[in-house]
Each structure stands twice: as structure tokens, then as C-alpha cells.
Nucleic acid binder design. Structure first.
Lengths: 341, 341
DNA sequence: TATATTTGGTTAAACGATTAATTATTCTTT
DNA sequence: AAAGAATAATTAATCGTTTAACCAAATATA
């Protein structure tokens, strides 16, 4: 592999010092620092030699890498994949590269990834945190490291985060089912003990109680690790346990739960919208291809991504961190705004 | 933000030189370079101070960054998202970080991203190339830059690539429909002029000809840019143009085409497996949730990712590049191996 | 006893880019 | 004509790490 072209190479070629080349290539040649013709010559040689600046050297010297780290729970989940997509597109406009990584919901992995990204001298982080990742995040906050939590947050932690109003979103999802005349609405959510999920549960519970339909037994907690097995067990219990009255509606609190749930319903011959009404949190390509399209709660993914980037870059350039909560509103795929009472 | 802990900090704390600390922290203290107790002391202080090595500095000095760049066509497509996922998981085992980026099938963007990643001093690249990205890729090849193409390749270019046998996969997909007694099988593929897609077309054409079913009018080319409109136009033409006999089978050559196509079929009330048989290239969550599950050609995504990483790292560490083609076999979701004649 | 060898370190240069401080030249201004 | 200002460049230090080359003291070898 050929040696890379450095500023020094150009300098020698043109017969000038490193500094001059650097000034020109950073467009600091205006204020009477370098002559027009010299600047032109340098630029020409740089182009001819196909010069590419060395980010490592620049980053080392400048103390910043123009790189931001993104940590999501699972890049193969379309919700996160779309977030990642928009974050990257938008960050690029500001000259930032994005390193995308996965935790797979593992706290240990979060800690490890954090180390790796910090070693890479990322200028800031956008993190979808894990259930017990708080200590690791807290350390960063203490160090005043530029950081934005996304989708989830730790309420006790003074930090920046971009999320949606999960409570309202959940309420409107349940109301949708109630409007459909459902009386026994089950909730399938993750056991994860973070407010975004708790808020979804609270939205469900409050709405059900208000409608006089609440029933503890209809709340089903799924463990992310054993999602497939858990869902089968719980659905079997709901539908085929003689002791129970069957549900007439299900609210799936994430798209991954919904996907597994719908698949099993399908397997067992339970027809959506005929035998049961369903609504999901987040979208999946699958939803509008089913026999009867599945309604869902749509998070404003592009806006969430952009805002996370905005908030983060603001921290980075200002060098000062003011904890802030940015809360967006989701809406139903059937187009009713969620925050309408 | 607090200043970062460097090797120098540790050296001062322990009362020793930079070099000694570096040796210990890189586990080069065995061969009688540093005493046991000193090594222990240094490691302890490093841990206490929460030292994290600076990748930029190390990369600059060593001339490599332990980072590889991944360029895919669209991270929000589950096929690429899954590839990215496995590539990252596997690369990590070798101590490599992965920077994931998107071209959106744009050649201009490919060129730009290439520059950005090279600036970041990535040690190698895994690239899903764009239709006319050949000149850019060719430049890298000439420079002997470690590089693996993935999913697609340029046949005239001597390089490493990891792909599947698209011809065989396509043949078995078409045979599947023929076995289902389909006579008029349409092909929906992208206009993209790269061999992976051409091979799929050739597989279709050859199989149809062999069965005496070939008909030019059943081949429909979709432009990635205007995918939604194109699909509607072509499906309308096939199904609602009085002049045409209706098809009884469709082979969608990618999952994105399939998704749009199925959605439109659904919209128009054309029932899959009742009015028409369908098979797709690549999987989507949607496929097995539909009224009747859609069969598909499954690429061995984890293996493709792993092999790409293996081949790339091999190039990087050996420092020498031997062009090679790694071809894997896809199989049908109905479990018949594709390469069985 | 004189000489190798091992043990346990240190020094200093290098990677490539940035930038404050400095110098040298030319042009204004009074 | 002399001083000040503007122009156009250079020098050298710096970021954090690695590593070849060097050195000194202790130990082994003949």
C-alpha cells in the first residue's frame, strides 16, 4: 500500500513550509496570511496529489475528532435503524461522522462500548441506555461529557434527553381500542424498569381504570431475553386457559413484541380484527401488509434524530451542558393526534 | 470537562518514564523489561485513574486505527441492517470498531463517504458498492487499500468480494413458482446495472425459457429512485391492462421491491396465494405475518458478514491483497437448498 | 578477575496537523 | 526619510503513544 500524502509532502513539492500549507487547506489564507498565487499553487498540488487530511493527527492536535458515537439497543430493529439513519444524515451536515454501535440491551456491553468510543475520542455521545446502565452514564455526566440520551432516560439523572410522551401515546393507543368497543384489553410490555416503558404501562392502566376496564391479569410482562417463549406462554394463558375469559384487544408496547405476538397469533389461527383488535407501539413493515393492517403509534423518528444531534452539537460547541428534556409527541397511524384529549 | 488521563499522568504519579508505562499497559513487560512490582503499581494507578488510551494518538503513531469502515446502500433496509449487525459483532472480537455509513445508492455519496472514512484512517473497508461507483473503488484497488466488496461486485475489477450465487438462487425461486403450476411469472427487479441483479434476471430468464414460459413482457424494471410509482404503474399494467393476460406468479428480486409490491397488491385487493403466487428475494418481518406467508430466498447474512470481516482482516494483517471471490449459497425459506438441481 | 549477560529501566524521535510567536519584506503615511 | 502597518512567510512547540536505541547495575560465566 502506497504511503499516504501528508501536508509535509505537499509542502516539499511546492517548496514551502508545513504551516503555509495547513493555513491554505483550512481556508485561513484570507486575512493576508498567504499570497493568492501561493494559495492557488498549494491547492492545485493538494488536489493533484489527492491529499486527504489525517483525522487522527488533526483530532489529536485539536482535542476533538469531529466524530460522535451512537449507541442503540439493536440496529436490526427498524425503529433504531431508522433513528441511526437520520442521525447520520443530519450529523453529516455539520461535518460529524457517526460511529453506530449496539448494546443488545446488555449493561455490560454498554460499559464496554462506552470505553471503546471514548478511546476513539468521540466528541459526544447519543445513547439509548440499557436498564441498569445508569452508573456508567452517571460517570459521563459527572465528567461533563457531551451526552444525549435518546428514547429512554433515567429520571434521577440531570442530563439531556430526547424522548416522546409515552404516557399520552399509550393512552391514545388504549383509547383507540376502547373506541373499538374492546372490553378486555391486554397489555404486552417489556419487564424493563425504565420510565419510557413504565409510562406506557401507566398510560394503559390509567386509561383502563378510567373506563372501568382495569384488570391486573391482563398485564403481561415479557423478558427481552426470552421474548419468543414468554409471548407464547402468555398468549396461551390468555386464550387457552379455561379459567380465563378471552381478551378482545391487545396493546403491544413495542414493535418487537408485536412482531412475535402477531406471528404467534397467526400460528394459532387467531385472526386480527376478527377475533381480536390490536394496536402496537412503533411501526413495522409487516403491519400494513397483514390481512387487516395493524394500527400503531408512530414516533417522529426523523425529528427525534435531528433533535438529538442538535442538542448534542450544541453541547459540544458551547462546551457547557445544560440538562434538558426534549419531549415530542407520537401519533396514531390512523392520523389522530395523540395529545388530543 | 475534565482533562483526560494520559500515559504521562500515570508516569508522573508512579515516578517513572512514559515508556515504562506504555510497555506495561501493552503487556510487553514480560521479557524482562519491567519488574513485577513496578508493573503491578503502574496497572493499579492506571485503573485508579480510570485511564483510557487515546486511539487517535495510538493510531497516528502506529499507522493504523483498529477501525474498519462499512458502507451499505441503506441501513434502514433490514438486509443491510442485519449485515451491519453481524459485521460489527464479529469485528469486535478482533478488536476492530466499525463505522457504519449509507450511500442511499448514490454514487456521489459513495465517493464522499470514501473520503471521509479514509480521512478517519480506517484500516480497511467493507463496501456494498453503488451502480457507477467503480472508478472510486478502482482507485482504492490500485492503491492496494484493504477492501472487500459485499453483496455486489464489479466483474472487471480484480478485488475481494463476498456474495451469494444469485443465479442459482434466482433459478430456484422461479422453479418454486413453476412447481406451484404458475405459467405467467412476472419478474420485478431493479434497473441497477450490476451483476448481482443481472444474475437474478438471468436465472429467471433461463429457467423460464427452459420451461417454455419466457415472455419479455413479464420482466418489469423498477427504478430505485421512483420505486413506489414504478411498481404501481407496472402492476397496473400487468393486472388491469385489457391487452394483457394477467400473471399468475411474481418474483420480487429484492425485499424492498417486494414490500412495495405487496402493499400495492393488497391495496388493489389482489390476494397473495389466491389470486397470485409470490416469492421474494431476502426476508422481511412482514412476510410471515401475511394472510398467507410469503416464501423467500434467504441469504446467509451472518456468514456473509463474518466472511467479509475475515477476508478484510486477513488483508490488513498480511498486508498483501489477493483478489478472491467468496460465493455462498442462499436457500428458500421453505428449506430446499437452492443449489440442488 | 575480567567479561558477558540479564534485568530494569530511560531518552528521544516519530506519527501528521495546528497555531502562537517570530521574522522579513514591502507598502503607507506624515 | 523614518516609523508604522500590512503582507507573506517560517519556526517550533504541541497533542498522546509507541519503540528503537541506549545505559547502568546486578548477576552469571569462563
Amino acid at each position: 500500500m502506497k504511503k499516504r500524502i501528508s501536508i509535509k509532502t505537499i509542502a516539499q513539492e511546492v517548496g514551502v513550509s508545513n504551516a503555509t500549507v495547513s493555513l491554505v487547506l483550512n481556508n485561513k489564507d484570507k486575512e493576508g496570511r498567504v499570497s493568492r498565487e501561493m494559495a492557488g499553487k498549494i491547492r492545485k498540488v493538494a488536489k493533484d496529489l489527492n491529499y486527504e487530511p489525517n483525522h487522527l493527527a488533526r483530532g489529536l492536535r485539536m482535542g476533538k475528532s469531529q466524530t460522535i458515537g451512537l449507541i442503540v439497543a439493536d440496529i436490526s430493529n427498524p425503529f433504531f435503524a431508522n433513528l441511526a439513519f437520520h442521525i447520520q444524515e443530519y450529523a453529516e451536515k455539520f461535518g460529524y461522522s457517526v460511529i453506530i454501535t449496539n448494546t443488545n440491551e446488555s449493561d455490560a456491553k454498554l460499559v464496554k462500548i462506552l470505553d471503546v468510543l471514548i478511546s476513539h475520542q468521540v466528541d459526544g455521545l447519543i445513547v439509548v441506555p440499557t436498564e441498569h446502565g445508569k452508573p456508567a452514564i452517571e460517570e459521563l455526566v459527572k465528567k461533563n461529557f457531551p451526552l444525549v440520551l435518546l428514547d429512554r432516560w433515567y429520571p434521577e439523572l440531570q442530563t439531556c434527553y430526547v424522548v416522546i410522551d409515552n404516557y399520552q401515546a399509550s393512552k391514545s393507543a388504549v383509547r383507540y381500542l376502547i373506541n373499538k368497543k374492546c372490553k378486555r384489553i391486554a397489555l404486552f410490555s417489556y419487564t424493563i424498569d425504565l420510565p419510557h416503558m413504565q409510562e406506557r404501562k401507566r398510560g394503559y392502566a390509567d386509561t383502563m381504570k378510567k373506563a372501568g376496564l382495569f384488570n391486573e391479569g391482563l398485564i403481561k410482562d415479557i423478558n427481552y431475553i426470552s421474548i419468543d417463549a414468554d409471548i407464547k406462554t402468555e398468549l396461551d394463558d390468555l386464550f387457552f386457559n379455561e379459567k380465563n375469559e378471552k381478551p378482545d384487544g391487545i396493546f403491544f408496547a413495542t414493535n418487537s413484541i408485536a412482531l412475535h405476538g402477531l406471528r404467534y397469533l397467526f400460528e394459532r389461527g387467531i385472526k386480527v380484527s376478527k377475533d381480536i383488535e390490536v394496536i402496537c407501539f412503533d411501526k413495522s413493515d409487516a403491519f400494513d401488509l397483514m390481512e387487516s393492517p395493524v394500527p400503531c403509534v408512530l414516533q417522529p423518528i426523523p425529528e427525534m434524530g435531528k433533535l438529538a444531534v442538535d442538542v448534542l452539537i450544541n453541547q459540544i460547541v458551547k462546551g457547557v451542558i445544560t440538562p434538558s428534556k426534549v419531549e415530542l409527541f407520537a401519533k396514531l397511524s390512523s392520523d389522530n393526534p395523540v395529545n388530543a384529549s
